[in-house]
Design a protein around this nucleic acid. Sequence first.
RNA 1: GCGCCUGUAGCUCAGUUGGAUAGAGCACUGGUUUCCUAAACCGGGGGUCACAGGUUCAAUUCCUGUCAGGCGCACCA
Length: 672
Amino acid sequence: MILPLHEQLKARVRAVLAERYEIADPDLAIPIENPPNRTLGDLGTPVAFDLARRLRKAPRAIAQEIATALGPIPGVIKVAAAPNGYLNVFLDRPAFLLARLGVAGTLPPAPLRTGKTIVEHTAINPNKAAHIGHLRNSALGDTLVRALRFRGTPVEVQNYIDDTGVQVADVVVGFREFENIDLAGARHLAATTRFDYYCWDLYARVTEWYDGDTERLKVRAATLHDIEHGVEPTASLAAFIADTVVRAHLKTMARLNIDYQLLTWEGDILRLKFWARAFDVLKQTGAVFLQTEGRLAGCWVMKIDDQTVTDADPAAGPAVDEAEDREKVIVRSNGTVTYVGKDMAYQFWKSGLLGHDFHYRRFATHTNGDTLWATTSDASLAVAEHPAFGAAAATYNVIDVRQAYLQKLLKQALSAIGHQAEADRLTHFSYEMVALSHATARELGFAPPPDSDEAKRPFVEVSGRKGLGVKADDLIDRVIAKALVEVNRRQGDLPDLERRRIAEDIGIAAVRYFLIKYSRTKVIAFDIDEALSFEGESGPYLQYAVVRANNIFQKLHDRLGLDEAAMLAPLPAAPPDCINGDEGDHELWALVLEAARLDEVVEQVVRTLEFAVLAKYGFGLAQMFNAFYHRAQILNEERDDVRRWRAAAVAYFRRQLTRMLDLMGVAVPPRM
RNA sequence: GCGCCUGUAGCUCAGUUGGAUAGAGCACUGGUUUCCUAAACCGGGGGUCACAGGUUCAAUUCCUGUCAGGCGCACCA
């Protein structure tokens, strides 16, 4: 944990600037950076560069003046001006490490955060099995949830279920038109097959069927109407399909240690007339109005804020090129609501602006005993005692980049009804999609014809409609199977069940690391061989580093009867030469300092929503440890103080990397 | 047409709020195992940071333009 130290340092530098140069500019940033190596310092700031012009002095001279004026700072042993003008800070290494291990000294308390944050992620159409594209959403969403909780933010995790949309309707059509299966038949099927896989294939067949004759789309429209209006037997069949597939999704996600607190069902938003409520507000404020002329006559529309209009140079006159006003239809001329409208109602509820609430029912129980709640519109199913849902101070919607336009409309709706603050606290966590590498598409039997446009593209697009994609469970199964082969080879003496569990931990790490390690703005061209690789930059590499660290303590215990506490207890009185690098070797300290940066990295990750940074940090930390591990022995080290300082560094490292892995939902297996 | 994103080593990607010597994995190649686990470690080769301007003490990073690729812009969801 290093952020409190950053804050302390910034405050001191700020105070010196005020005293000595009468600079009290609250906007002046004091960036705290990490010098490239430990000889230069442990923390550094280029603040003198900014001041050079202002003070008409060389950066180095300024840095020197600040350094002498700073005075003693707790935890800091030396402040030095580098020849190039950087101001570098050297920390009290033994004190730093011992405080963080809880052996001596104290740490400042973590900042208290209030204000519930809602994170909505996953939101898979409940009409077929989940695929890798969905996994990217869930892995990012779940990591965001864990990162927010890590820094003390209260979080409510929601999974939105579109149970009344076309996609579910399509599968209902398939059941009836192709299979002649009714509710009882569907129940039987669900009890005897992989229902979500069955729907996957059926859905692809239905889209093909529509393509054969567009007249058939009328069947879809009629089915959708029946679902929305609760017309039997269609409504019950649709509800059963959605419920069954959602449970399959939850099971898939649970394999990756991803869970939720509330499932919000679109059908409930409809039946509880959330839209009517939201519509009132939108009409009252004029955000949505009835268009009386043009091609959208008879529709209720919302004006779309266009950057090009607002940013236009006023001197250039009115934006003549903006020939048509851009308007988004919210209520169609036939009186039905578009899904944007439904989404607005949901968002108003999330932001605490609807003045209406769902009923709630228990949907399932997590392995830890917690209840997974679901919304309901049926008062007879409602449970009186339930947590308070919705009405959050901030919202994150985890949805891929293709929805950016609609998420912008959502934000705009909030500000249009006079809630700019809520709009500002709504974040579209957008990320690029997952496609398939050509090699993997070929392996799945989807080779585009040579010389076609498809073949020339850098990747092959996943398509649920075509049934083209890697199913999440298939991927997880394959990765675990691969891990099991490796575990069997290395840990043959362990019982079957134990080996299986280790392989699962490893498989989860491989999949989750893979989904996190790319920048969110980058399309992942998913390649199965790459995902199955456990060498180099991979989840298992990180786990392996912690397993080795844990092994050292296991061996210390087995051979010498020493546990971690006993190993570390004498350190406050031990000579600190080893950690201070008096022999010119700063590797041990470098490992400690890097391990301490977890909170800094989490802050950065929450600020930028760039989880690749977290992944790279974990990998880099594991790399540092592995190098250290090879160079600095502990069990075979004879100098007592050296051995204990090394053990302390390893103890802190394993603690921090274990926490980092937990942020990805990854556990550390006992052996690998 | 308009908007958003991307372009860095053979391939896949990092590069923080503009800051110290542009990095990693894979692939290629040479080495390390009587040693706390070789899913590891150490070394080597490999760069017009797409291109052209601009701002700055400092640009892979910010701005403008060009080129190339991806995505989005429905009374679908």
